[in-house]
């Protein structure tokens, strides 16, 4: 196994040479590239990458340009994960036959948005995890189909106004709760499943390195605050991400071997969920008298979830 890159503090980290290039066409203030940078900079190993169709793919591979300095492939919406799994299987086979030209072990990472992971690519990801490929799947979770204009996905939280679930006089927007992808992937028996956020970079780098070092398919659910679809100013990406992690709307935790749950970040001051909702235009309508009850509903649900996570952590089951 290759050595794990030593990153003690941010100054250490800043000596990394980026393998993801500028002049991609992601929106100003997009959290996608902050996540990609943190993943790529967390290791010095060779990388074999893929991206499923989505913002990341259409913005970083605009013919005749590529923004990737590693091997990178794109095929379709659903099969970003299987493209990398295929490369991994080929590498394993060639190695077993002694036909590798160089004895190097790259890391295999697939990136996909929440649409390509929670909905469209779900069956493919499930297959990769069932077959036990040695790869990591990173979800850039912006809770909406941002690339095609903001349709709801199964990661969209309740009460959000999206183009296919608009808020108005008769509806508060999205009616369903976000799918719990973490538990689903943990149930596949994955050695490492973690929820991360780019604003907590140290926590995230630790999770990435753990995920890359583990043998078998690992899964990271990375929150990607979307300035366009969540409707906040581009410079507030980190501030909104901080609100999400500190209000526990997006709790950071890991599940090891499908069982052992550890909370990896406990905010010093827990922020009311109301502040998180108020920071984004997509929840603006919840502050009208008609839908105000939703805010308390949100708070109760988040509190209940946090309670559950803490009990799981204590019980170690």
């Amino acid at each position: 196994m290759s050595e794990i890159k030593k990153i003690k503090n941010l100054k250490d980290f800043s000596t990394s040479a980026d393998r993801f290039e500028g002049a991609n066409l992601l929106c100003p203030g997009c959290a996608h590239s902050i996540i990609v940078r943190e993943v790529l900079n967390a290791t010095n190993d060779d990388l074999v990458l893929s991206a499923a169709t989505g913002c990341l793919e259409v913005c970083t591979a605009v013919y005749p340009y590529t923004s990737w300095d590693s091997s990178w492939i794109h095929i379709g919406f659903e099969n970003g994960s299987t493209a990398v799994a295929g490369a991994e299987a080929m590498h394993k086979a060639l190695k077993a036959k002694g036909r590798l030209k160089q004895d190097r072990d790259p890391k295999f990472v697939s990136f996909a948005g929440d649409g390509a992971s929670y909905d469209i690519g779900f069956q493919w990801i499930s297959g990769c995890f069932e077959r036990g490929h040695n790869m990591m799947h990173v979800v850039l979770d912006n809770e909406v189909y941002a690339n095609t204009g903001g349709q709801r996905s199964s990661a969209t939280p309740i009460g959000g106004s999206n183009t296919t679930t608009p808020a108005g006089t008769h509806s508060y927007g999205e009616k369903r709760n976000k799918k719990d992808m973490m538990q689903i992937m943990a149930a596949h028996g994955s050695p490492y499943v973690a929820q991360v956020a780019p604003n907590k970079w140290k926590n995230m780098v630790k999770a990435i390195q753990h995920g890359l070092a583990a043998e078998g398919p690992t899964f990271l659910n990375a929150m990607s605050a979307c300035t366009t679809e969540w409707k906040f100013a581009p410079e507030d990406t980190i501030a909104v991400s901080d609100l999400a992690t500190d209000s526990l709307v997006f709790p950071l935790y890991e599940i090891i071997d499908g069982k052992e749950l550890n909370i990896t970040y406990r905010p010093k001051n827990i922020v009311p969920v109301e502040e998180y909702l108020a920071a984004q235009g997509r929840f603006k309508h919840l502050f009208k008298d008609q839908y105000k009850h939703m805010i308390q509903e949100w708070q109760d649900r988040i509190d209940g979830n946090w309670e559950y996570l803490q009990r799981r952590e204590e019980a170690k089951v």
């Binding site: 941010l10 800043s14 290039e21 992601l26 203030g29 959290a31 940078r37 780019p198 604003n199 990406t237």
Partner: peptide, 9 residues
């Protein structure tokens, strides 16, 4: 901080 959080390298 600016280095780690810059989305455009």
């Amino acid at each position: 901080f600016c280095w780690i959080f810059c989305p455009d390298m």
